[in-house]
C-alpha cells in the first residue's frame, strides 16, 4: 500500500474533477503576460502592418508579392539560407569534438577553467568582435601578412568583405554556443551506457556511433536550431564582414526602414523570415525534446 493510502489522504483519480488551484495559474501568469505583451501583440501589429500599403495606407498584399516576384528579394532569402546552413554545419562539426574533448579528456578539476576560456569571446561586444575580424581578414591583416611573408601567396587574398568573412564571424560565435549545449549533453550521459556497450563487445568507434552520438543528438539539434535561428536573423555580422557584396534577409529588412521608413514591407519580409524559421523548427521538432529517457 502506498504511503498516501496509509495516511488516509484521498488520491486524485483520472477523470475526477479537482478544485481549481489558483497557484499554478498565478505562477504562469507573468510568463504569459510577458509573451502576450512582448511577442503576441508586436507580432499582430507587425502582421497588420505587413498588409498595409506604405503610401496611403489601406489593405494590400503587394508587400508579400514584391518578395515573391522580385528576384533580388528572394535571392536574399536564398543567400540567408545558404549562409545559415554552412554556418550551422561547420559549427556543429567543430563544436562536437571540442565539447567531447572538454567533457571526456579534460580532467574534471580543469573543466570549469576550460569552459570559461571557451566562452571568453562572449565577454566582448559582438560589434567589436566583428570589426576585429574585419581587421584580421583585411588585405593588410594578420592572415594575409602571414600568408605573404611565408611566401604561400604572391598577392593578398580577398578574405574580408566576402561570404567567407561572414561565415567566419558567425562560426566563431556559434561554435562556442554549440560547445556549451553539446558539453552539457555529454556530461549528463551516464557512463553506464558506454560500459554496457563495452560489455557487449562494442569498440570505441561503434559505441560512439551507436550509443553516444544518438543520445547526444537532442543536444546537437537544440544547439543547431539555436544557431539557425540566431544566424538567419542576424544583421550585424553580414553587414560588417560581408561588405554588402550580397544581401541577406535582415539587411534587406533594414534597408526598407533606413531612409524610406517602409515599415509595411519590412514587416512582410520579417514575417516571411519567421515563417522560414517556423518551418525549420517543425522539421527538427522531433529532436528538440527536453525530456531525457
Amino acid at each position: 500500500m502506498s504511503n498516501a493510502a496509509n495516511s488516509g489522504r484521498a488520491l486524485p483519480r483520472a477523470g475526477c474533477a479537482l478544485p481549481r488551484a489558483p497557484l499554478p495559474w498565478a505562477l504562469v501568469t507573468p510568463a504569459l503576460g510577458w509573451t502576450l505583451l512582448f511577442f503576441v501583440l508586436p507580432f499582430l501589429a507587425m502582421g497588420l502592418s505587413s498588409l498595409t500599403a506604405h503610401e496611403g495606407g489601406g489593405f494590400t498584399l503587394a508587400n508579400y508579392s514584391q518578395f515573391f516576384t522580385d528576384p533580388s528579394y528572394w535571392r536574399a532569402m536564398v543567400n540567408s539560407l545558404e549562409v545559415t546552413a554552412i554556418v550551422t554545419v561547420i559549427s556543429v562539426l567543430l563544436a562536437y569534438p571540442f565539447a567531447w574533448i572538454l567533457a571526456e579528456q579534460v580532467p574534471e578539476r580543469w573543466q570549469r577553467l576550460a569552459l570559461m576560456l571557451a566562452v571568453l569571446p562572449f565577454w566582448t561586444s559582438y560589434v567589436v568582435r566583428s570589426y576585429s575580424w574585419l581587421l584580421v581578414l583585411a588585405q593588410n591583416g594578420v592572415i594575409n601578412r602571414a600568408l605573404t611573408s611565408l611566401g604561400l601567396v604572391a598577392e593578398p587574398l580577398q578574405l574580408a568583405n566576402t561570404r567567407f568573412a561572414t561565415v567566419t564571424g558567425f562560426v566563431h560565435f556559434f561554435v562556442m554556443l554549440l560547445t556549451l549545449t553539446i558539453f552539457a549533453n555529454l556530461k549528463q550521459l551516464s557512463p553506464s551506457y558506454r560500459k554496457a556497450a563495452a560489455d557487449l563487445g562494442a569498440g570505441p568507434v561503434r559505441t560512439f556511433l551507436h550509443v553516444v552520438l544518438p543520445l547526444t543528438l537532442p543536444g546537437i539539434m537544440v544547439g543547431a536550431f539555436l544557431t539557425f535561428v540566431l544566424c538567419i536573423g542576424d544583421y550585424i555580422t553580414p553587414q560588417i564582414l560581408g561588405g554588402n557584396n550580397e544581401l541577406l534577409m535582415p539587411q534587406l529588412v533594414m534597408m526598407q526602414i533606413g531612409r524610406r521608413g517602409d515599415f509595411p514591407l519590412a514587416s512582410a519580409l520579417s514575417i516571411i523570415l519567421m515563417a522560414v524559421v517556423t518551418v525549420a523548427y517543425l522539421a527538427c521538432a522531433r529532436w528538440l525534446k527536453i525530456e531525457r529517457a
Partner: peptide
C-alpha cells in the same frame, strides 16, 4: 540614421 528611421 536615415530620415525614415528618424520619423519613425
Amino acid at each position: 540614421e536615415g530620415t525614415g528611421a528618424g520619423l519613425a
